[in-house]
């Protein structure tokens, strides 16, 4: 780095003019979707059918975003407050049954805090399991 270089204004002209004919670096975001890489940590999803109710996730969550409630014989409902979640993925890491998964769905902005409270329903009781209409999970966030 020599200290006495010839200084002049308007040094950026060549690269500016090149930009003029280049494709813009920005995208028309809401119209052009942005896809995050596969391992991105965003909205957590709980597959409650495997949950054993050990509450390791509840104990380990840094922000107290997850709640596990028993709703019947060995059936558990999971509630995640996406407004509190810091998306660290600690819950997925400590879960012994790997029931929690972090998806790459990052577009979670909401106008109402209430819509950020997502409930993952417990699996249907064994007797009702034959009923095909009761889905194993419901995404209330949508």
């Amino acid at each position: 780095m020599a200290r006495t270089l010839w200084r002049r204004p308007g040094r950026m002209v060549p690269s500016l003019l090149r930009s003029l004919f280049r494709h813009p670096a920005t995208t028309r975001y809401p119209f052009v979707k942005w896809v995050m890489p596969a391992d991105f940590r965003a909205r957590p999803v709980v597959h409650t059918e495997n949950c054993i109710g050990c509450k390791m996730c509840v104990r380990n969550c840094p922000s107290g975003a997850i709640e596990i409630e028993p709703v019947g014989e060995k059936r558990f409902e999971a509630r995640i407050d996406l407004g509190r979640c810091v998306y660290c993925g600690r819950c997925a890491e400590v879960c012994p049954k790997k029931t929690i998964e972090l998806t790459k769905d990052f577009e979670l902005a909401a106008l109402d805090r209430k819509t950020l409270k997502v409930v993952y329903d417990a699996p249907p009781p064994p007797a009702a399991a034959a009923n095909p209409e009761a889905g194993p999970e419901r995404d209330a966030g949508g």
């Binding site: 500016l16 003019l17 930009s19 003029l20 280049r22 813009p24 670096a25 920005t26 995208t27 028309r28």
Partner: peptide, 10 residues
Amino acid sequence: LYARLQNRQG
């Protein structure tokens, strides 16, 4: 033009 010179959509 300002945006395109800066490599933005504008």
